[in-house]
């Protein structure tokens, strides 16, 4: 009897050990990400699938959104198809680490620990966000400071829960977190009345509110309790690939600055006398070739999705259901903080 028990323990431990290390023993591939994508003929991009405006998949399986479009831009710059992989906050880093996706573009906050611990690199900021609170209008709450003792619904595995804890601690208030795996479920529980408050990045709250049964019933609190620079990530150590993703984002921002749009890009490429435009679109110079992509990489990206402003307006801008003002995400020249390094 005891003998059996001990043998079972031994085998169980061995099996467990085996599973754990096997999980970790995926060999580091020698090929660079760019080579892998070229030989595959396809770029795989990890995105959100339940956040309308940023990353969303419809009933036909079509992906759309702000983060999705940046992936499309990179794919177009390389001239390859883009396949999307829906990821939860919990899976996203492992998916990138293990090579299941080539780039992660999923409203992910750039923090120092993520940048240094995970073997991943943040390559750009595409959206400057901050965390906020959404409550039911009927509660009559005017400020987040009145939320002591409230139940808060949120999605787990994000900076959101850490900011929330920090903020309530700093303000000496109590709260009850109710943590869901899926944003859908967190919203459903908040709507059902399980929680008084829903918290997330303000852009997400706007998105979720637009998806709520009755958007008019909910209000956003004025406080912004954190800095949330969101942007794409690549694996640490593959600098060429990181450069391609980073400079594609920069190209889209610069395009807006220079007035290059999806509609006029072909014509501008032919006729523009502006040397920076010429360098950006590959009419002169060898910027694209130096990076390992075609000379017209930026032109193709802009042609596919438009410049930064077009992407913004199409997915989350004032004309959409989300109705997000540009705010910080305006060009530096127009009062925002979008500032691309020069194309030189």
């Amino acid at each position: 009897m005891m003998r059996d028990g001990r043998i079972a323990t031994g085998w169980g431990l061995l099996a467990m050990l085996g599973a754990v290390v096997a999980f970790g023993a995926i060999p580091a591939s020698a090929a660079t990400t760019l080579e892998t994508i070229r030989s595959r003929g396809q770029m795989i991009c990890g995105v959100n699938n339940e956040l309308p405006g940023f990353g969303y998949v419809d009933a036909q399986g079509n992906y759309s959104g702000f983060d999705v479009d940046f992936c499309r831009a990179v794919g177009a710059a390389l001239g390859v198809d883009v396949r999307f992989r829906a990821l939860t906050p919990r899976d996203r880093f492992s998916a990138l680490q293990s090579g299941e996706v080539d780039v992660l573009s999923r409203n992910t906050t750039w923090t120092i620990s993520r940048d240094t611990n995970l073997g991943l690199d943040f390559v750009a900021t595409t959206y400057y966000d901050g965390q906020g609170f959404m409550v039911r209008k009927s509660l009559g709450v005017k400020s987040a400071k009145e939320l002591g003792g409230a139940s808060v619904c949120l999605t787990t595995g994000t900076t959101t829960e850490l900011n929330l804890a920090d903020w309530f601690r700093a303000n000496g208030l109590q709260y009850k977190p109710v943590l869901f795996e899926k944003a859908d479920d967190a919203l459903k529980a908040y709507e059902a009345g399980r929680c008084d408050v829903h918290t997330s990045d303000k852009s997400q709250l706007a998105s979720l509110r637009s998806a709520a049964k009755n958007p008019g019933e909910h209000v956003l609190m004025p406080e912004v309790i954190s800095k949330e620079p969101l942007g794409p990530l690549t694996r640490h150590g593959d600098n060429q690939w990181a450069d391609i993703v980073r400079w594609t984002v920069n190209a889209l921002i610069t395009a807006e600055e220079l007035g290059v749009t999806k509609a006029n890009v072909d014509q501008v490429a032919k006729s523009s006398k502006n040397p920076e435009v010429q360098r950006l679109l590959g009419t002169t110079g060898s910027l694209g070739k130096d990076m390992g992509v075609g000379a017209d990489w930026a032109l193709k990206a802009i042609k596919a999705v438009g410049n930064y402003g077009e992407i913004y307006d199409r997915n989350v801008g004032p004309q959409t259901k989300l109705a997000l003002e540009r705010g910080l995400n305006q060009l530096w020249s127009k009062g925002g903080i979008l500032f691309s390094p020069p194309f030189r």
């Binding site: 754990v20 999980f23 970790g24 906050p89 919990r90 880093f93 492992s94 680490q97 620990s113 993520r114 611990n117 995970l118 787990t156 595995g157 994000t158 829960e161 850490l162 943590l179 795996e181």
Partner: peptide, 14 residues
Amino acid sequence: SVAGTTLNQSGQAI
């Protein structure tokens, strides 16, 4: 659930 949060916040999946 707690392990999932820990995994995500610490990044130490294995």
